[in-house]
């Protein structure tokens, strides 16, 4: 675990199967992903090693990648390459899990950067908290 990673959790009023469809099918994605941009194109091949591509060409942005893990309807992992005005970013990684939570389903999302570390990494606070704390102290000492 690299401490510089983003995690996000939210519970939705839906079943894991419904959420799985929303994340892994073209029709499913089109209902929510960039729904304010109806000209967005969705191409999804939801198989391990299969690719996806979401293009909002009119707005100069898109994202593409490859499915690394698919365990319906529990876990989904894919690479993530952001495209802006034709320029591609580095390949990052997104892992999404769907867990029953009361009457709904909790999504846990983990977005990690392309860096790797040769050092053994121990458990620590989330990178987000760490970086914000450090910045806060810096601001205090500068004022």
């Amino acid at each position: 675990m690299n401490p510089i990673q983003l995690t996000m959790t939210r519970t939705f009023n839906a079943t894991a199967e419904q959420l799985w469809r929303a994340w892994t099918t073209e029709d499913g994605l089109a209902t929510w992903w960039w729904h304010t941009w109806p000209d967005t194109r969705y191409q999804v091949d939801a198989t391990v090693g299969g690719s996806y591509r979401i293009d909002a060409a009119d707005h100069g942005i898109g994202v593409r990648g490859v499915f690394l893990e698919l365990t319906p309807p529990q876990r989904l992992v894919f690479s993530w390459i952001w495209i802006e005005d034709g320029a591609e970013g580095e390949s990052e990684r997104v892992a999404v899990t769907f867990t029953p939570d009361g009457d709904g389903t909790r999504i846990d999302l983990l977005h990690t950067g392309p860096w790797t570390s040769a050092e053994p990494v121990d458990a620590y606070r989330q990178g987000w908290d760490f970086v914000l704390d450090a910045l806060e102290h810096t601001t205090d000492s500068v004022m």
Binding site: M8, W33, V131
Partner: peptide, 29 residues
């Protein structure tokens, strides 16, 4: 140096937060 990392985290946090809002509002159940 930390600003760059904070920016990386902030942009992705804001992106996924918006995506989660869209998912919650538009998921067809």
């Amino acid at each position: 140096g930390l600003d760059q990392l904070a920016d990386w985290l902030l942009t992705r946090k804001s992106f996924w937060s918006n995506q989660f809002d869209a998912l919650a509002d538009h998921l067809e159940t």
